[in-house]
Design a protein around this nucleic acid. Structure first.
Lengths: 159, 159
DNA sequence: CTCGCTGCAAAGCCTTTGCATTCGC
DNA sequence: GCGAATGCAAAGGCTTTGCAGCGAG
């Protein structure tokens, strides 16, 4: 089923209204699949499309879309709340965050399905979602370090 | 090695100063192992010990302690930055968060050591940390749901 | 004695809220 | 037309920052 149709159905089911703003906010996430957008970034992207929706409405919409499972909330520890489309048909994916440059890489496969089931069984939790972040230093930043060390060594040799 | 000694050494190594405030902040985490404290909670716990340290200093200290790997920063999606002691000798643990009551449970074992190594090898990242959160409904809240449903059914039968 | 650290208050930023107006149904 | 949703501006809450004074080395 098409996603905007699903949105309409879900809103009806909850006796909420189908508004252009709600559809527009969802459209930004669909057009930017794979990005982890903050409310402010959604606002900017909408502005560029000459669609002026107030920030208050964006905050209200992303939270609603999350409750209806169209979006996932993610957090990379930078103090901002981010959201991304949640596609029921694809696997969950995870994030690899570089502590130095802040860049976020994605790991496409979901390696935690079995783990999730196991933990659910063992704890009695009805688990509906998980979020896994790895933190480290990406290859690029590792190379920069090496270069700096080499520079220092060269300078010491020159002394 | 004792942890305050490690703190002193690490501060010296970085040519920073050993202050009573830094030790006091770390002490709160040691005395509250297993809790996930916000800056404000640290402030409150210090006040109860008649140790009045300004919030600014607490924010600066927890961030420094994190950089030095004495603390881990964790985020449960409630808009607050939390920290907990990071014990090099014990395994990492994960969090199980109830979407209804907000309670956080801990899963003691670390199931991701191998996964971390695998991903490091495959991506070239030098991974130093990971954070895994599961979200769902805890057994207690599931029971409340059942009771509510039963209530409704009983009322319907009575009609 | 020097320079880093702290405390205080103010500023900054992201997010939420109150309320009048608009608009879906 | 009714009640929900939006927009605006203001408020709220957590965190950071500037700067004077203090204190570790």
């Amino acid at each position: 089923m098409e996603i905007y149709e699903r949105l309409g159905n879900e809103l009806k089911r909850r006796k909420l209204r189908i508004t252009s703003q709600r559809e527009a906010v969802l459209s930004i996430f669909i057009e930017n699949k794979g990005e982890h957008l903050t409310a402010d970034e959604v606002y900017e992207k909408l502005s560029h499309k000459n669609s002026h929706i107030s920030k208050a409405t964006i905050y209200r919409s992303v939270e609603l879309l999350r409750e209806m499972n169209f979006l996932s909330k993610i957090n990379f520890g930078d103090g901002l709340e981010r959201y991304e489309v949640r596609d029921a048909h694809t696997h969950q994916h995870h994030h690899l965050i570089c502590n130095e440059c802040g860049k976020v890489y994605e790991i496409e496969e979901d390696l935690l399905d079995d783990l999730e089931k196991l933990i659910g069984k063992r704890t009695g939790f009805k688990i509906v979602d998980h979020q896994l972040n790895f933190y480290g230093v990406c290859p690029r930043c590792q190379n920069h370090h090496k270069e700096e060390i080499e520079k220092v060594e060269v300078q010491q040799v020159r002394k």
